[in-house]
Write a protein that binds this DNA or RNA. Sequence first.
DNA 1: TTCGATGCAAAGGATTTGCAGATGC
DNA 2: GCATCTGCAAATCCTTTGCATCGAA
Lengths: 139, 139
Amino acid sequence: MKQESVISVLREQGHRITNVRSAVVELLETSKSPLSADEIREELKKRKLDVNKTTVYRELDFLKGRNIAQEVEFGDKKKRYEIVGKHHHHVVCVQCKRAEDVDLQQDLDVVEKKIARGKGFQITGHSLEFFGLCSNCRQ
Amino acid sequence: MKQESVISVLREQGHRITNVRSAVVELLETSKSPLSADEIREELKKRKLDVNKTTVYRELDFLKGRNIAQEVEFGDKKKRYEIVGKHHHHVVCVQCKRAEDVDLQQDLDVVEKKIARGKGFQITGHSLEFFGLCSNCRQ
DNA sequence: TTCGATGCAAAGGATTTGCAGATGC
DNA sequence: GCATCTGCAAATCCTTTGCATCGAA
């Protein structure tokens, strides 16, 4: 549904719809949490799509450039990617690196306006991550 | 003042106080925004302290391990470091990478408690960064 | 003297680039 | 057919490690 629309918008814009492209978009859209390039590659492999690392990076770059995907950082050196517009505030377990979503958009909207006014900044995005131990890893 | 105390605590704990150690601590304590390993190295060089990259990383690791410094990420592949306890919410200009502080601790305290209750997460830290264009780069 | 701190070179891991070949439309 | 996508190898960038030496206490 949602996936149809991203892909069809891309198609209308004259971009090629390759297997990799639609698979990556679908992956990101259905994933519960942001995925690293490597995780994406592994997921694709499970679906019998064996894709080179480089290709994954390039696809992510493509999606980033069209404001379809965006980067999130969880404190290791990997970047992770998620669809723009999905909630992007997370609670990350520092041990197992599992991430869950939290929705704090309302609170942040207020804060962003405050900052724009106070500092003359034109805010284009933000990242908000909480780190800690999930109920499993606490034991 | 503040610097005295960090250093003297370390001394009391039996850690050696080298030129590099006290210089890095002072740097971080007086810096207006988080610094990358390389920025630290450059600053030290300005102060006639020529230090190897590795040493800077190791010192940062040391400070991190003692909960004196912590990492912050601004969306490029570099880690940046700041003193724990200094405000660590930032407004980052995506163009010039300059960062300013914003204090949102109050708002976040509330949110963290909410999350701890709702998700069974034991929150140990967070990162909150806003990205945008500063008044200079907007032109 | 002793153990932590340091430098240097090399390794490591994630990401990027160059180029040639493959493929969607 | 042609521009874009893809794979492979090599390059890059940041960070880490191994090992020998140095230096603070």
